Computed example of a mutant assay.
Amino acid sequence: MTRTQYYVAASLDGYIADAEGRLDWLFQFNDVEGVTEHYQKFLAGVGALAMGAATYEFVLGEKLESWPYAGIPTWVFTHRELPRFPGADIRFTAEDVGAVHEQMVRAAGGKNIWLVGGGNLVAQFARRGLLDELLLGVMPVVLGGGIPLLPTRLSGVLELKDLTRFGRGALELRYELPRGAGGSSV
């Protein structure tokens, strides 16, 4: 069954990027034993991606030689004209997440949907009751401000399904959202 997952890393104080939108604080954990293998296993279960314009522009700004999500159809939610990444299966849309979610489920072919990047897009999925899991990497860093993990309230209590410990104090918490756990603007 296809699950819609928000797989993201955050600081201890709940920010996914610093006040300038940078991720330097996170990249220092890339070499922690087991993290790369864990990510690759997660990615192997992904059949479709969704990201907002800011996340897509961040990926473009990394000046990568190849699209990091090769072979995975990617929906970029935007109201602006954006350049295409050569060779990537990118589908730009300004449609409502509910309508696009059905397309993503079909394209995922039984694999999962990964909501990549910022919490604003994820909040739209959550408000529509379309978010099944939160896979939260918690990094032992306090940023004191920045881009919040999820700028919406989720109704109900999330159920902790798994906890993975990595070196240097990094954790991953896997939460399942209660059915119908739509959010509200905060």
Rank of each mutant, 00 (worst) to 15 (best):
T2A: 12
Y7N: 11
A9M: 12
A10L: 04
D13S: 06
G14V: 10
G14R: 01
I16E: 01
I16L: 08
I16G: 03
G21D: 02
G21T: 08
L23T: 13
L26H: 04
L26Q: 15
N30G: 08
N30Q: 07
D31Q: 14
V32P: 08
E33R: 09
E33K: 11
V35E: 05
V35K: 00
V35C: 04
T36R: 13
E37Y: 03
H38F: 12
Q40A: 15
G45L: 01
V46L: 02
V46G: 05
A50M: 04
M51R: 07
G52Q: 02
V59M: 11
K63F: 07
K63L: 07
K63V: 04
L64M: 13
W67A: 12
P68G: 03
P68A: 02
Y69H: 11
G71M: 03
I72G: 08
W75L: 11
T78R: 05
R80N: 15
R80M: 03
L82D: 01
P83C: 05
P83V: 04
R84C: 09
F85D: 06
F92H: 05
A94T: 02
E95A: 15
E95P: 05
E95F: 10
D96Q: 11
V97F: 09
G98K: 14
A99D: 13
V100R: 11
Q103D: 14
M104P: 10
V105R: 08
A108W: 01
G110P: 07
N112V: 00
N112Y: 04
I113G: 05
W114N: 14
L115C: 14
L121P: 07
V122D: 03
F125W: 09
R127N: 14
D132T: 09
L135S: 14
G137C: 01
V138E: 00
P140F: 03
V141I: 12
I147K: 13
P148C: 01
V157S: 14
V157N: 14
V157K: 14
L158Q: 14
E159C: 01
K161V: 11
K161D: 10
T164V: 15
G167V: 07
L171P: 06
L171D: 03
L171I: 06
E172H: 12
R174T: 14
E176H: 09
P178H: 01
A181W: 09
A181S: 15
S184E: 15
S185M: 12
V186D: 10
